[in-house]
Simulated scan of single mutants.
Amino acid sequence: MIRAVPAAELAPTTHAFPVRARGLRVRAGRHLAVDGLDLDAAVGVHGLLGPNGAGKTTLMRALATVTRPAGGQLEVLGHRVHERGTDLRELRRALGYLPQHFGFYPRFTVREFVEYMAWLKEVPRREVAGAAQRAVERAGIADRADTRLKTLSGGMLRRAGIAQAIVNDPAVLLLDEPTVGLDPEQRLGFRDLLRDLGTGCCVLVSTHLVEDVAAACTDVVLADAGRVVWQGTPTELAAAGGTGDAGDSAAERGYSALLRRARQGVAA
């Protein structure tokens, strides 16, 4: 007897919060860089701001399953990353990750590199070429697809890194300082790409560029000393500052004000 399969069983699994952390602790070497961090991240674009040493890169590495948590709880797409023995292979197929410094084979062309990363992420073989072409087009580097990586400028190389991060149409996309080396025109294009990606994906972008967050993100996460000290919208960020706060824009003044209040123990 053939059983009719309900549509609910065929639909992809969804999560109210693709990323959830409670009391998360993560080490960077011997240093506890993330210490008691709580975070909920839904579908949309989340801008992760904070000073150097705030634990942003270490958090991104933990979310990407590169670094195991030292304590607390971390769930990504329902997978408990904090539990040893968890099989992370299925999760990694659904992730996209661009680290601050990513490795590559210099003699690869952009296309070869992105196709290779698609293969590593277990994209079906018959879909690899098409997925790579779509990724380089979305990253704005299609005209350099057959150029060797070693000949690219820093900005173009960064765009190749973005292409490999999105080649598998990830459910969670992690971008650590993605606009380093991009010129102003390229950054504007990147903002458009973020807005597009955030309609169906949970995107976390770690950056020092407050204006990029204000322009492209639906949510802002401010971290300091290994913890989230504030979370809200770009509008709320801009409204948090005053004329006496450091910064050349409302968003930068809000960032300075919120960071100062957090360090003083004052509620935002």
Rank of each mutant, 00 (worst) to 15 (best):
R3D: 06
R3F: 12
V5W: 15
A7P: 00
A8P: 15
L10S: 07
A11M: 13
P12C: 14
T13Y: 14
T13P: 01
T14V: 15
F17A: 07
P18A: 00
P18S: 05
G23H: 06
R25F: 04
R25M: 03
V26A: 13
V26I: 15
R27F: 15
H31L: 10
A33T: 01
A33V: 00
V34M: 06
D35V: 04
A42N: 14
N52V: 15
G53C: 12
G55T: 06
T58P: 15
M60R: 11
A62Y: 03
T65P: 03
R68M: 03
P69S: 10
A70M: 03
A70L: 05
G71E: 07
Q73E: 05
E75F: 06
G78E: 04
V81S: 00
G85N: 12
D87N: 09
L91M: 11
R92N: 08
R93S: 04
R93M: 07
Y97F: 13
P99E: 11
P99T: 03
P99W: 06
H101C: 09
F102E: 01
G103F: 05
F104H: 09
R107S: 10
V110C: 05
E112N: 15
F113L: 09
E115T: 02
Y116I: 08
M117H: 04
M117L: 11
W119H: 06
W119Y: 13
V123L: 04
V123W: 01
P124A: 15
P124T: 07
R125Q: 14
E127A: 15
G130I: 03
A132C: 10
A132F: 04
R134M: 02
R134K: 14
A135K: 04
E137F: 08
E137S: 09
R138H: 11
R138L: 13
G140Y: 03
R148G: 07
K150Q: 13
T151I: 06
L152G: 08
S153Y: 14
G154T: 01
R158S: 02
R158D: 00
A160Y: 02
G161H: 02
Q164A: 04
A165T: 06
A165Q: 08
V167A: 07
P170C: 02
P170H: 03
A171C: 09
V172H: 00
E177A: 01
E177P: 14
D183L: 12
D183G: 10
P184S: 05
E185N: 14
R187P: 00
F190I: 06
L194G: 00
L197R: 02
L197I: 04
T199Y: 13
T199S: 13
T199V: 09
G200L: 13
G200A: 11
G200C: 11
V203A: 07
T207Q: 05
V213F: 05
A214I: 08
A214F: 13
A216V: 15
V220C: 09
V221K: 00
D224E: 10
A225N: 09
A225C: 10
G226K: 00
R227F: 13
V228D: 11
V229F: 15
W230C: 01
W230Q: 02
Q231R: 12
P234V: 11
T235S: 14
A240I: 05
G242L: 14
D245C: 09
D248E: 05
A250I: 09
A250F: 13
E252H: 12
G254W: 04
L258A: 08
R260D: 11
R260F: 07
A262E: 13
Q264S: 15
G265P: 11
G265A: 05
G265Y: 11
G265H: 07
G265L: 05
